[in-house]
Amino acid sequence: MTCLLQVKDLNVSVGDKQILKGVNLCIKPGEVHVVMGPNGAGKSTLANAIMAHPKYEVKGGSIEYKGEDISELSADERARKGIFLSFQTPIEVPGITVEEFLRSTKAQVSDEKLSVLKFRKSLKPILEELKLDESYLDRYLNVGFSGGEKKKTEILQMKVLDPDFVMLDEADSGLDVDAVRIVSEGVSKFLTEQKSCLIITHHSEILSSITPDFVHVIIDGKIVKEGDASLGQRIQKDGFEWIRQELGLKEPVAEEE
């Protein structure tokens, strides 16, 4: 089977600073991949580069999606092809309600035309599943939301847009146990044989309800170790230090992602 998403020798810089130093990745339809790594290793950079964040400059390598080189496409074009990124820190957008926003985005990614009422009705089961009150639809996007509400709203957007390939950047960070469970369940229900997923996390709460097919460890901008779900469990237990020792990597200076 060919890759749904293929990243080849990806080099990414932010300003003058090189973050990713030759990353290779192949995600096939239906696969769940997890990228783990210490803070500052380049995990979020990978996701943002795949989504075409203008701040993350691709200096070398390529990104292919469904067999097409998408390296030159803008974020909205990539989104319309079915790529989705759940943000680590969702942005507050004052003045735009969640419902308005969902409706405009849905109109961009699909040809389906839904009346206002039908659209609102279609949101109800998703809201219930995520334990979000219907009143959230009338609130401004992420404005004044708690960490958990923001992450749930990301999952809500994901379900409405129905992408083929989703990236979850720290979807479970900063959440209480219940919220982690709701978000994880929401994601795992969404993932079917056709959907592929790249989960970015520096710990692995989310992995208790989603079993990955592959686990990649990024340290200092490179994928240094790959394995199956058991690698994730080992990291959950022992952290990253043993990998550094095993590979003879030195302790990096703390960097901002």
Binding site: A79, G95, S104, L161
Partner: peptide, 26 residues
């Protein structure tokens, strides 16, 4: 980053800016 956030949901850049400005004026 806000523009990128909206674009990552399929909204073209100019419309993303317009949405942010309309939201500001809301």
């Amino acid at each position: 980053t806000a523009i990128f956030y909206l674009m990552s949901r399929g909204i073209p850049e100019e419309e993303a800016k317009a949405m942010i400005v309309r939201g500001f004026a809301e």
